[in-house]
């Protein structure tokens, strides 16, 4: 490589390097350093793991943390179960314009911001909202029903937000399944269930894992949906981070939480990959 070529390469790569460096690596390094500084006196900080210890000694913190993890896994699982038939339909049954229409339909909610979308759910679910009104009109309830501010509402909102990100990689994976392979599965005596379990799902595995990783990450890191739909009962770990940074102005504590959240999502993704026997490489290619 001669100097001009090297320069050209550098210029071409510069935006990407800057992007990665400034927006991802740098803040995280900063947060990592910050998370290890303890406040020993007002405005006096010392190096130490106290912020992490605080997390383990205060039940609210680690309970919220565990709750976030478990609910995110549940949301991912529910999204997967809901998205699979839809993706199967889009990939195997729908043809031409119908297929494009269906994908557009999945995409449509993302034309409005997450906040507006979540507020939409609030309008539907609140005590004086549409669903409550319909329930009363149908005679299924005799007084206004509050459907907001519970785990169900949080899960609903999160699943809704994750659906598209599950459907696209799934449909992608299912599309590449040769129709004759499925027919051969039936021809050799397989029931629908056998064909699904032994042929369709194994084939879609990279898509399943890719979609699950994306949805899980989005869910764990979500802020608006659990706060708005869960209210006081939302108890999402991102709220704790927000509170430390913004309300309490305890940046070191918030940083420690941030690092813990990063560790959590990495650990769960790694476990998921190990459990399904997929490698990150094939999964990323699918997504």
């Amino acid at each position: 490589m001669n100097p001009t070529q090297r320069l050209a390469l550098f210029v071409l790569l510069a935006p990407a390097i800057l992007w990665l460096g400034l927006l991802i690596v740098l803040p995280h390094v900063e947060i990592l350093i910050l998370s290890f500084s303890e406040r020993v006196a007002p405005r006096v900080y010392a190096f130490g793991a106290g912020n992490y210890l605080e997390f383990f000694t205060e039940p609210l913190y680690w309970r919220t943390f565990a709750r976030t993890a478990i609910m995110s896994i549940a949301v991912t699982a529910i999204t997967l179960v809901l998205a699979f038939p839809i993706a199967l339909y889009i990939a195997r049954v729908a043809q031409g314009r119908l297929k494009a229409m269906l994908l557009l339909l999945c995409l449509l909610p993302f034309w409005v911001s997450e906040l507006v979308r979540t507020l939409g759910w609030m309008i539907l679910l609140r005590e004086t909202g549409v669903v409550s009104y319909l329930l009363r009109a149908a005679g299924l309830a005799d007084q206004p029903v509050e459907l907001l501010y519970n785990d169900g509402a949080v899960i609903l909102g999160l699943v809704y937000g994750g659906l598209l990100f599950m459907i696209v990689p799934l449909a992608n994976a299912l599309e590449s399944l040769e129709p004759a392979v499925v027919e051969a599965g039936f021809d050799l005596g397989g029931s629908r269930w056998t064909v699904l379990r032994r042929i369709v799902i194994p084939h879609a595995m990279p898509g399943i894992v890719a979609g699950s990783i994306i949805v899980f990450m989005l869910t764990v890191g979500n802020f608006a949906t659990p706060v708005l739909l869960g209210g006081k009962n939302g108890l999402w770990f991102t709220e704790q981070i927000y509170a430390q940074f913004i309300t309490r102005f305890n940046w070191p504590q918030g940083s420690a939480f941030g690092m813990l959240l990063l560790l959590l999502s990495s650990a769960i993704v790694w476990a998921g990959l190990r459990l399904t026997g997929q490698s990150l490489g094939t999964t990323l290619r699918q997504a």
Partner: peptide
Amino acid sequence: VNMVFQSLALFPMM
């Protein structure tokens, strides 16, 4: 009856 497909359609996941 069992069929040998034009593309063979072996199960690549097995």
